[in-house]
Structures are given as C-alpha cells and as structure tokens.
C-alpha cells in the first residue's frame, strides 16, 4: 500500500470518526439522535463562504463561532424544552430544527450552491517517504486526528469530561450528585459545535463548495457510524466511524465503477442488519456487570 493511499484512508477515517462522535455525544447524554447535526456543519461552512476573502484564521474563527451559536440556539429553542421527551419525539424535533436552519440558509445567502475557492496551499503536494502526498489529505488527517485526541483528552481527563460522561450514563444520579445539567448540556452542545466546525472546514476544503443541504451526507455518515459502533459508547462510536471512513476509501478503489453509485445502499443495508442482529452496536464490548 502506498503512503498517499494510506494517508487518504486514515484521514477519511478520522473525519468520519469526528462526524460520528458529534452524533454519538448528544445521543449518549440526551438520547438525542440529532438530525440537525448536518445543519451545524452547514452553518460553519456558511461562515467559510462569507469570510473566504478574509485571512484564513478569521474564516476559521468565524466557522467555529457560527457552528457553536447554531448548536447552542438549537438547544435553547428546541431541545431544552424537550428534555424529558422520548427519543423518537426528540428525533422528530431534530428534523424540524434541521429544516428550520436549512430554510434560514436558503432565505439569506444560499438559495443555490456556492463555490469556495480553495486556498493555494491546499493544492500543493509534499514529498513524503518517496511518495507525493497532497497537503489537503495531510491536513485532513492532522486536523481530524488532533480534534479526536482533544475530545478524548477532554472526556477522559478533565472534570467536565467526567461530568459529561456521568450525565450521559445516568442523568438523574448525576443531578443528585450536583452535576449541573443546565451547565453540562450546553457545554456538550458547544463541544458538538466545535467538532462540527472542524469537520466542516475539512469538508469545504475537500469539496470546494457550500450549499444549504450539504449537511445531509455528513449527518448520515455520523448516524451510520454511531449505529454500527454502538450508540451509547463513545469509543465504539469513534471506531465505528473510523472503520466506515476507511471502508469507504477501500470500497471506492475496489468496487467496480458501476456499483460506486450504490455505496449508500450497501451502507444503510448494513445499518438495518446491525440494528437487527446487534442493536447495541458491532463494536461495543458490553462487559458491564448488572448486579
């Protein structure tokens, strides 16, 4: 296997893992299968488009701000009021949020898809171990890998991370111990906003365009990865997303050209099968003792 292929595969895997974590985090904490996640990504991409002629740190900063604001607003206006609702109601509500954010985008700047001219440094190639690797792929890998490491650190090492995980597992008990729900849940949405912004930056770099419905594909990837990896287990979800990305890269080189168009059918049939055979996810090692 050549180095550039390996970088591309691991990079896409990391990107998909990031998308999956964004979906799985809120599912774990609130039981919310968030179909509006794609719109948070779209909001960040929207900022990238608006500020494409500013220096890139400004564009990146604005992408972060837009995504976090949309994430927090969706919590405040919709999900906050549905905290005790069952997961299906939440899922329908997230559909509504998704449509609302999309319509706002359509009403303002994005009735049609818009191009975002790629930064010149992205199209360059570097010589790495004798192979020519595109800077874009390398940056994808670096950014997504970095974000994943940061999430792992945040959740694993910090007080906030422990509280988030505790709230994810047993919300009631966490509240009894003094974990402040009204602080922890918005924090989770902020984390999701940041993750969405990072994935969005990478996505815009890769596809060079922005549109109101661009969030659909990444959101579906996040959902599939989370279902396959085990929805209430973040490590499993990340691994599920990673394998999905790696498998996609592999499929695209291995599958005959006339079957590539049916990739989504393969993926979602897998989802259905996983739900039937192993509803707790393929990769979640359910080794928890009950009594």
């Amino acid at each position: 296997m050549s180095v550039d292929f390996l970088v591309a595969m691991v990079g896409l895997g990391a990107l998909y893992a990031l998308l999956t974590i964004g979906v799985a985090l809120l599912f774990g904490i609130l039981g919310l299968m968030n179909f509006a996640y794609g719109e948070i990504i779209m909001a960040a991409a929207f900022a990238m488009y608006l500020f494409q002629h500013s220096p890139w740190p400004v564009a990146v900063a604005m992408a972060l701000v837009f995504a976090v604001v949309v994430a927090l607003l969706s919590e405040r206006l919709a999900f906050f009021r549905l905290r005790d609702a069952d997961p299906v109601t939440l899922m329908i509500a997230s559909f509504a949020v998704s449509l609302a954010v999309q319509s706002v985008a359509r009403m303002t700047v994005l009735p049609r898809a818009q191009g975002v001219s790629p930064k010149s440094f992205l199209t360059r190639h570097l010589d790495l171990l004798g192979a020519s690797v595109s800077v874009r792929e390398l940056l994808t890998l670096a950014l997504c890998g970095g974000a994943l490491a940061a999430v792992a650190l945040l959740l694993g090492r910090t007080g906030l991370g422990i509280q988030l995980r505790a709230a994810a597992e047993n919300f009631q008990m966490a509240k009894c111990l003094g974990v402040r729900a009204n602080l922890v849940i918005p924090c989770a949405f902020v984390v999701v906003g940041v993750l969405a912004a990072i994935s969005s930056i990478v996505l815009v770099w890769r596809q060079g365009s922005v549109s109101a419905d661009m969030g659909l594909q990444p959101m579906l990837i996040g959902v599939v990865g989370a279902v396959v990896g085990g929805m209430s287990n973040l490590r499993g979800a990340a691994l599920g997303g990673f394998l999905l990305g790696a498998a996609t890269t592999l499929l695209e080189t291995v599958l005959p050209a006339n079957l590539i168009a049916f990739r989504d059918s393969f993926l979602f049939t897998t989802v259905i099968l996983v739900l039937i055979v192993r509803p707790q996810g393929l990769l979640s090692g359910a080794k928890v003792r009950v009594s």
């Binding site: 007080g159 995980r165 597992e169 047993n170």
Partner: peptide
C-alpha cells in the same frame, strides 16, 4: 438509590471524584 446509581462506564476513582463534584 436502590440501584446504587454507580456510573458503570466510569472508573472507581472517577465515580468518587463525582461525589465531591
């Protein structure tokens, strides 16, 4: 509580730290 309310996915140490959160 009757079901003990242990966070089963967290470590023993993390559970204890949450007691004084």
């Amino acid at each position: 509580p009757e079901d003990r309310g242990i966070f089963t996915k967290l470590t023993v140490g993390e559970n204890l730290r949450l007691g004084g959160v």
